[in-house]
């Protein structure tokens, strides 16, 4: 009897420990599920070039994550990329004329969308579109621009 009880206790302790470990892994090691619980609203933004922006990339304002990218697709009608963002409902007073840019965190980090507040009295809401956008910086374009500038510069001299 004594032995059965200690076995049951050991098993219970083991299962509890395992559950705690699973819980830790699913909640503490990932940061992306912090949004899934709260209410969100969806806005769209069109970019000439999205670079390597991925689904679930963060949307940041002043460096704080306020939302996620939910879809990146090419719109065949307007011939530019259409990005859908979901933003937490608590941030419902972002000016409508805010500016969205695709930025990179760190030199080798992943890309995210940075919002820069505008001055309008109207706010972004479900279904609205961000008009002012700034494309991702593509290194090849930068290099070619730089080379081109140097060329033209030497011509003028």
């Amino acid at each position: 009897m004594q032995q059965t009880r200690s076995i049951e206790m050991g098993t219970g302790l083991f299962v509890l420990l395992g559950m705690a470990a699973l819980f830790f892994l699913t909640t503490q090691t990932t940061g992306s599920n912090s949004l899934s619980g709260s209410d969100t609203f969806e806005v769209t933004a069109r970019f000439d070039n999205v670079g390597s922006l991925k689904n679930r990339a963060p949307v940041r304002m002043s460096g704080v994550t306020i939302g996620r990218v939910t879809s990146v697709r090419f719109d065949p009608d307007t011939l530019v990329a259409e990005v859908k963002l979901e933003i937490e409902s608590q941030y419902d007073r972002i000016p409508e004329d805010s500016d969205a840019g695709i930025l990179t965190s760190g030199l080798l980090g992943s890309q995210y969308i940075g919002l820069q507040a505008g001055g309008s009295d109207l706010s972004l809401q479900e279904g609205s579109e961000i008009e002012f956008t700034q494309s991702a910086i593509v290194i090849e374009n930068l290099i070619s621009k730089y080379l081109f500038k140097q060329d033209s510069g030497s011509d003028e001299k």
Binding site: L25, T29, T30, G31, S32, R56, S110
Partner: peptide
């Protein structure tokens, strides 16, 4: 911890489980 949290996704944890 921050770098870990920002690059791991819930799918990665599920893959291991």
């Amino acid at each position: 911890w921050q770098q870990m949290r920002s690059s791991l996704e819930i799918g990665d944890v599920w893959e291991g489980i």
